[in-house]
Design a protein around this nucleic acid. Sequence first.
DNA 1: GATGAATGAGGCTTCATTCAT
DNA 2: TATGAATGAAGCCTCATTCAT
Lengths: 205, 205, 205, 205
Amino acid sequence: MPAAKKKPTTANASPERRREILNIAAEVFAAHGYNATTVRRIADEAGMLAGSLYYHFDSKESMLDEILSSFLTELWDGYDAVLAARLGPRETIEALVTESFREIDRHRAAVAIYQKEARHLTAQPRFGYLADSQQKFERAWLGTLERGVADGVFRADLDIRLTYRFVRDTVWVAASWYRPGGQHSPEEIARQYLSMVLDGVAVRA
Amino acid sequence: MPAAKKKPTTANASPERRREILNIAAEVFAAHGYNATTVRRIADEAGMLAGSLYYHFDSKESMLDEILSSFLTELWDGYDAVLAARLGPRETIEALVTESFREIDRHRAAVAIYQKEARHLTAQPRFGYLADSQQKFERAWLGTLERGVADGVFRADLDIRLTYRFVRDTVWVAASWYRPGGQHSPEEIARQYLSMVLDGVAVRA
Amino acid sequence: MPAAKKKPTTANASPERRREILNIAAEVFAAHGYNATTVRRIADEAGMLAGSLYYHFDSKESMLDEILSSFLTELWDGYDAVLAARLGPRETIEALVTESFREIDRHRAAVAIYQKEARHLTAQPRFGYLADSQQKFERAWLGTLERGVADGVFRADLDIRLTYRFVRDTVWVAASWYRPGGQHSPEEIARQYLSMVLDGVAVRA
Amino acid sequence: MPAAKKKPTTANASPERRREILNIAAEVFAAHGYNATTVRRIADEAGMLAGSLYYHFDSKESMLDEILSSFLTELWDGYDAVLAARLGPRETIEALVTESFREIDRHRAAVAIYQKEARHLTAQPRFGYLADSQQKFERAWLGTLERGVADGVFRADLDIRLTYRFVRDTVWVAASWYRPGGQHSPEEIARQYLSMVLDGVAVRA
DNA sequence: GATGAATGAGGCTTCATTCAT
DNA sequence: TATGAATGAAGCCTCATTCAT
């Protein structure tokens, strides 16, 4: 039986080990940047030799790919659930922000990598899904904000795209300083952020 | 200022050409990341060969150094002027934010580089001034916020460090999407940002 | 036969499986070249993992060795029988050519490998028998040709070594395009080749 | 002046040095095979470090490419001249064979490489021109042979494709043993080969 | 007999940098 | 001021091979 000639991608290696290594890689990518991270550094931290990584993965890039795509998959699971609930605009924003901080809590490294690398990765076909996600992301947030303006719950005197960027960045940059297990839970951080974003930091006259 | 640790050769090159090249380098660093940028790419874009850059600069790192340090110098010129004015906390915040957007307008590339690379550069002695600046920065903003809370103009129910990070990040990430010459002037952007940060995006009940 | 220089493990594997694998290996070596062939490719094609080959063989090189040496053994069985018959020079040449095409028919892959790799293998002690065979080969053919010239059945006006190379190459390169089971049997091809070599392709005046 | 952004391919390095290196590379490829040849080996023989080769060439493969394509270019210059002369079939064959030996004399290494590597290179798009050349080659030779059979100057009782392969291989394998500067000039070797191919090695009855 | 996971050597390539001209 | 040619270190990746299970 000539073995069905299926390309034996490295994908069939034990999933646990893969995950372990990916977590390590994500941590190092996040700390030092993708380009500045050597494959040997990852291997060192995983307790193996650089070449051995290639038993589990096709390339350094494919590790990055898997880190980012599996993060985005989970992110959209969460977002889609929120959007499917068809809440009011304010409640949707609240739920999205909360969900975002939860994702930052669970995928801190992936989010940090995403922040730093997404822009130039988008150019490569392999990472085309980043652009897709970004577009979907924009539609979800911008749409909700527009709905809120129409409903009179969000201010109409602001440039809506500016508001979108403000809210978006405000949430995601948090990954650059957030440390899981710190004094604030993701939900608590979300609450405070929402309070600032929605009501401002100034005391009302 | 510790005197000439490198060959003085690089000093007598015409300052204009240096600036030109630095601007080009900053643009490329910002677009592709410092590590991913080759010295050859910079040279190409400057219309010379890679080796020729070394007539003007000691090293790739020294270009980065000069880009970041000259940006920070200008930034602190602006900030120090604001702080010296001893305005009230709200007015100080407003002035700092406005000044920040002006810097983003003038040094977009440098700011973007700073965002992406500061964290790991801080570890190197050569870039120690980044940490110094960051500390000074934190004192200025955090102090102003604390003063504002004490004066009753800023909300007291928020974690003050969270607020600090919120305001700080919110402003600076703008460099990632800001394009000079767009439809909003830096001052206009500052006004809208301040409006969101201070009063929130929600319509008041 | 110098006794067991390697682990005897590889000896007790079933001879049929060995043969199967060797045939596969020979096919791949012939198609892509020895160096360009990975042990994993062979294993894939044999429906096993690369490491598993080492139950059957000591090394990639030992596969090559076995392929070539068993081919040469069979070749010399045939040639020796021909030479032992002590035919006239023309009949000897005819018999050798015919025998050669039969070997090409049965060991196409091995012959192709031999063509491509013999030259540099000869340098390695392990493949010393290649040089021996080559020498023996030359003596047999060149001797027969010389005998033919002496007997007046082959032309005397040609450089005899050139003639030797001409006849030799002419036969063996056929392995590069010959496909067993094609429209011509090895004997038929031999007949036509002999006709060309002995009588030329031009119509006689 | 932003330097016209022409991709500065490595092709602009001084042509003499390139040729020198290519000749060395061809020699090594021919002796050890393309795959078995390390880039370092080539560099060693050229008196430089491996990395330095990349100032002159894009890759190891591009050296191979340039070696083969420039050989084929010259070959076709010669062949086309012969074919353009519209000689009779026998004279055309004689001229082609003579031209071939001249090419072997001048491009021995390239021819040897071609012999060994052409088959698997043809699969790669980059080397598509090998297949083109092969086809053109076949048309030229086969066509001439067919014309000769029709004109009654070549034997009609032979399988014409077999004859084609016989003549073709017979000539080109010579590259495997030919050494320029030996006792026979290319023209002399051509004369003897033609004599054997056309009239056979047997003495006429 | 075979798998899964690794080793370790070595290969190709990139790139910051140097230096004579 | 800049070029052309090179250096040398380091990076990613491949692959034959090993070995416990």
